[in-house]
């Protein structure tokens, strides 16, 4: 099973992205997207931003669950107080596990934000952040 994670800033700009696969059932953690699909991931995820824009005003929860579909892929979303969006492209529905993943991701995001040298909407390039996201992916997905 493959996943694509994107963190999108308040100005709809990309802050971070990662594609990975599951470690469960003998998976090795690398995504199995075909090249075509892999190339499309950012676009797919980006187009669901419009849906988020509408839904976020009627739903005051952070975890918006599945908000969009693309063929057999689902897109789940989580929106922070500061309007930063976590988007996950995945294959099977798993609301609760994905929510926990997003909550821990939020924790990582806030730690990044707390540094005075990181500005809101800036791309996250820290290798440690990347490492920690992968650990979360392994833990939950």
């Amino acid at each position: 099973m493959s996943f694509y994670l994107a963190i999108i800033g308040s100005k709809d700009n990309a802050i971070y992205s990662l594609d990975f696969g599951t470690y469960r059932q003998g998976g090795d953690g690398t995504s199995k997207f075909s090249a075509d699909v892999r190339q499309l991931c950012p676009f797919i995820v980006h187009s669901s931003l419009d849906i988020i824009e509408e839904v976020q005003w009627t739903n005051s929860a952070m975890h918006l669950k599945v908000i969009d579909k693309f063929y057999n892929y689902l897109i789940s979303a989580y929106v922070t107080s500061g309007n930063i969006k976590f988007l996950l492209l995945h294959e099977t529905r798993a609301d609760e596990v994905i929510r926990q993943f997003f909550v821990d991701l939020y924790d990582l995001y806030v730690k990044t934000l707390m540094s005075p040298f990181y500005s809101v909407d800036q791309a996250i390039t820290s290798k440690v952040f990347d490492q920690r996201v992968k650990m979360l992916a392994k833990k939950y997905l």
Binding site: K111, T112, M114, S115, P116, F117, Y118, S126
Partner: peptide, 12 residues
Amino acid sequence: SDFVELPDDGKA
């Protein structure tokens, strides 16, 4: 300096 990460510009 809680939570501070110096910028990655090689200079800081």
